[in-house]
Amino acid sequence: MNNPHILIEGVSVFFPLYHGNARSLKKTVVAAASGRLGQDRQHRVVVQALRDISFSLHGGDRLGLIGSNGAGKTTLLRTLAGIYEPVIGRVVVQGRSNALLDASLGMNVELTGRENIMLRGLYNGLPRPALARLEQDVAEFAGLGDFLDLPVRIYSAGMVVRLGFALATAIRPEILLMDEWILAGDAEFLDRARQRLEAMVRSADILVLSTHDMQIVKAWCSRALWLDQGQVRLDGSPECVADAYLGRAEQTAIAAMAEQ
């Protein structure tokens, strides 16, 4: 069983709410996440970010996660990456995984571009010779020139995005966990970026992608999971799930218009 695979069995993840005035916070959160508040054994207020999720993925699977903001997509990605450990249930992940959750992962704006590249390599456990290759690859793609030796703090917003993207796509994992920020970028950059991203996606054995873009889900994924308030609403082929999700979204929009 050394092939990359993911097994999720009855996983629930709860967030404790410790900070701030419990009572007023309680009121605001009740309004925001209706029905998803509970109390745990010690009577702390918790948000149930994921509730009883089960699925398994094997080599070649491409899973798209869809759902509204706050549905639990990013929490599920973090759970798969081992950042959040489940409160109930079991998570088994076999394979080198890489989670691309936000552009600034570990980037320290006080450090130079070159130092940031080296750090990312070390975070990923790269040996010395691979570090040099990583630096060359990222420098070439980001096209920062002499800026590479200046602190990231003085980069333009576009340069930061280029560096972040180049770094994120430079390391090839077996299991790729992707949040949708990576699909955004400026137009001139986008073409080259898409090629590079697609090359990385192709080389991964398993892809889990969280996105709002149904075209991407249909084009890239072989399976889709619709998350709603931390629960699986629908699990099936990308076309089927995307259409169901869009259908519901349309209904909500119509209902909202009718109310007005």
Partner: peptide, 20 residues
């Protein structure tokens, strides 16, 4: 231009369960 890097193989099995 495929110069991408694959990380070194570490202990890659992650097994976590609730209430261990």
């Amino acid at each position: 231009m495929d110069t991408a890097v694959t990380p070194e193989v570490r202990n890659t099995l992650l097994e976590l369960e609730g209430d261990p």
